[in-house]
Structures are given as C-alpha cells and as structure tokens.
C-alpha cells in the first residue's frame, strides 16, 4: 500500500475524529473521492468556515459565530436564572429536553485539581462578574454527576452564597423507567440519601 501521498494524508487527517480509526477513515476517504466529491467539497468548505468563525459567546462562553449567542441575545429568555453546565453539548440537550427558559453558562470542563484544572481554566472570573452584577436570582448547577462535577457544583454554590444567590443542584438517582434491582449500589445509595417529601 501507498504510505505517502494526498490520499494517505486525508486518511490520517480523518482519524482525528472521535470514534474514527484507520479503517473507517479509509472508507470515508474512498467514499468522498469515488462517490461524493461535491459532498466532500462542501464538507471542506464548511469545516474551514466553522473552525475560522466559531468562537465563544461573550456572556456564556458557549460556541457561536456571533459575539452573543442565540440564547444570550434573546430578550424573551429569563435573565434571573442561570444554568451552569460543563460543555456546549449540555446546553443543547437541556434546551431540547426541558422547559428551561433561563440563560446558560458553559465552563468547558470541571474542577479537576489532580489535572491542575482550577477556577481560572473554567472562566470563573466571568461567572463571578455575572453573579456580582446582581441580576441573577437563581443558579442551577447542572454539572455532571462525577466527583469532579460535584466539586465544581459545591464551589460555584459557595460563591453564589456569598452574593446571596439561590443555588440549586439538578437531582441525581434512579433513572426514569429504572428498576431498583438493576441499579448500581452507588447510585442507589445516592438516591436514597437524596429522597424527598412525597
């Protein structure tokens, strides 16, 4: 097989995508060159455009090509509740699945002291400025249910307390349609400790 040339370079470049190894990259490259050159051209244009133009929203740090993202620019959305999430993908899923009409803040990560990721890497200065501005009444902590996500939530919750902002944490526990028998002990213990008045 050829070990150099454009085709090889294309295959190697496609391997940067998640879940794509050399075999699938090879299939993709041959498909684009043999059957769908227009699609390939369109893909390359869009990729170049997106990578050049998409940056971070000035207020919530989500991915957007404008200075203010769609959510932050929408005057109908409630500026008094702020939902803090780890990644831009979380904004999408929450927006699709819930009736939440407030605004978001994207950390692009979580506190992870062992990896040296602290408040500075998470845009915490900007979040603190927004809390200090006095408009926010409630912060919803929608970080992941890992120890690092929990640490991030505790930290933001503590700082929110300093500004007299109500902090709430999304519930964790038994999934919808889940049967107790099949749930892992850690999740079940957590669900039990977090039981509510019914």
């Amino acid at each position: 097989m050829q070990n150099q040339g454009l085709l090889k370079e294309l295959i190697q470049s496609l391997c940067c995508l998640p879940g794509v190894g050399p075999k699938s990259a090879q299939r993709m490259a041959f498909h684009l060159l043999q059957r769908n050159r227009d699609g390939g051209m369109q893909l390359s244009k869009m990729l170049a455009k997106a990578v050049n133009e998409i940056g971070h929203c000035r207020e919530c740090r989500t991915l957007t090509e404008t200075e203010l993202c769609e959510v932050c620019a929408n005057p109908l959305r409630d500026s008094e509740t702020l939902c803090v999430v780890e990644s831009p993908a979380d904004v999408w899923v929450i927006d699709q699945a819930t009736t939440f009409k407030g605004k978001y803040f994207v950390l692009h990560g979580r506190l992870s002291p062992l990896d040296g990721i602290g408040p500075d890497q998470l845009g915490f200065e900007l979040l603190e400025q927004r809390m200090a501005a006095g408009q926010i009444k409630e912060i919803i902590l929608a970080t992941n249910s890992t120890v690092e996500g929990q640490a991030t939530a505790h930290f933001i919750g503590e700082v929110a307390g300093k500004f007299n902002i109500r902090a709430t944490r999304i519930a964790h526990g038994v999934p919808m349609g889940g049967e107790l028998e099949f749930i892992d002990s850690g999740t079940l213990a957590h669900a039990f400790n977090g039981r509510r008045e019914f």
Partner: peptide, 24 residues
C-alpha cells in the same frame, strides 16, 4: 463491588483531591 462511600462536601471535597495526589 461497592463497600461504602465518603460523600465529601465543599472544602473537605477539594482537600480530598490533595490527599489523593499525595498518595499518588
């Protein structure tokens, strides 16, 4: 197998990471 958990909170949780790094 799960035995027990230590649901650390706030400062204790942040310090827990430090303890882990020392062990590492």
């Amino acid at each position: 197998e799960y035995v027990d958990s230590y649901p650390l909170e706030r400062l204790a949780l942040y310090c827990g990471f430090y303890v882990n790094e020392l062990v590492q």
